[in-house]
Design a protein around this nucleic acid. Structure first.
Lengths: 207, 207
DNA sequence: CAAGAGCATGTAATTATATCA
DNA sequence: ATGATATAATTACATGCTCTT
């Protein structure tokens, strides 16, 4: 099934390394968000498990460019890839990888976004449902009162007034079908996604 | 702010590479899901952009072990880390990294899960809301009929019957407050998170 | 306060498959 | 069948925060 040896030359003979157009390694990224950074000791050698120190982090220039491109088109044709790579002094492969990762990130962000949206929609819906339940109860009570009133009024006099047509028309069936059914679920559903999930991830995103 | 040079030794002098306890490279992973895999050509040299070859997959044995540990406890104390690392023939650092990545993955999965759950809850709630709206309409109609009936009945006779106490008690205010308000939102909310995501993602990132 | 350990998060890069021209 | 690109999952690294000693 797999005749090919996967490794036919073993370890790196470091060939090339890139110019550092932007002080990638020495470049600090003072995030505007953190005010109390104390910028303490930095790791000094950070050689990885393989004993190699690798280049990481694209420069902010590069990222900006890439983001722009990504904004206009998530996909990446060879053309653009080559062009971009040349323009940014990157390996085309890196550009491809960047786009792939960016798409993944995009999906993840979208999920978070959609989740919050859905959550708030749900909350709204549940609140609304509660109000409806309440209103429904009131209405039922009103109706009951009205029926009693009708009963009272018609009892006092002739007994075969159009009253009968009323209670046949819109009476019991509906009430029977739904009854109080709603109320049992109101709080159940409203609690469900609100205070429940005891874990963390619920408030970790805000974009 | 950053007196320290981050790089004090530059490129890889490949030092160590790992024993291959499990035929990592030759090991095929016949995923139970994919039936029509054709397993074509394999990468042969895979040296990275920097000319370094790295990142071997952990063997399935190792992963299995790690998963077990993770299952019993997501966090990882030095003890366990060292022990595990020794047991699996891995660098303790790798074990730590694995756990970090695993926790991240766990959160991501959790989010997916919660999202589906919430979505179906929302769907249910919206359906319920629809039914309530419908029932409400019916009830209002009934009530209206009843009131007409009462009107009719009381018109024919004395004009100051207890009827007044009824309409004061549970009459207009509630109906006025809610009215038809509900129906406008029912379908709106249900559509919202379904087909939308247009093309805004370019500005939702980069915080 | 400072040095360290562990963790969360973001990001780069690799591996494994799938799909398509 | 080949090669390029895509997605998903992984492995690893960088950085900042928090808590402990």
């Amino acid at each position: 099934m797999n005749p090919e040896a996967l490794v036919d030359e073993q370890m790196p003979l470091i060939s090339q390394y890139y110019p550092d157009p932007d002080g990638i390694y020495t470049q600090f990224v003072p995030q505007p968000g953190a005010a109390k950074t104390k910028a303490r000791r930095r790791r000094r050698k950070s050689k990885g498990i393989e004993g190699v120190m690798r280049k990481r982090k694209l420069s902010s220039e590069q990222v900006k460019m890439l983001e722009e491109c990504f904004g206009s088109e998530q996909k990446l044709e060879s053309d653009r890839k080559e062009r971009l790579a040349a323009e940014l002094g990157l390996d085309p492969r890196q550009v491809a990888v960047w786009f792939q990762n960016r798409r993944a990130r995009w999906k993840s962000n979208k999920l978070h976004e959609e989740y919050s949206k859905l959550k708030s929609d749900h909350h709204t819906a549940v609140l609304h449902k509660c109000r409806l339940e309440t209103e429904l109860l009131k209405l039922k009570e009103q109706l009951h009162e009205a029926e009693k009133e009708i009963q009272r009024l018609s009892d006092g006099f002739s007994s075969n007034s159009p009253c009968s047509s009323f209670s046949m028309e819109v009476g019991a069936p509906f009430l029977g079908e739904f009854g109080m059914e709603g109320l049992e679920n109101v709080f159940y559903t409203s609690d469900q996604n609100y205070s429940a999930h005891g874990m963390e991830w619920d408030n970790l995103y805000y974009m």
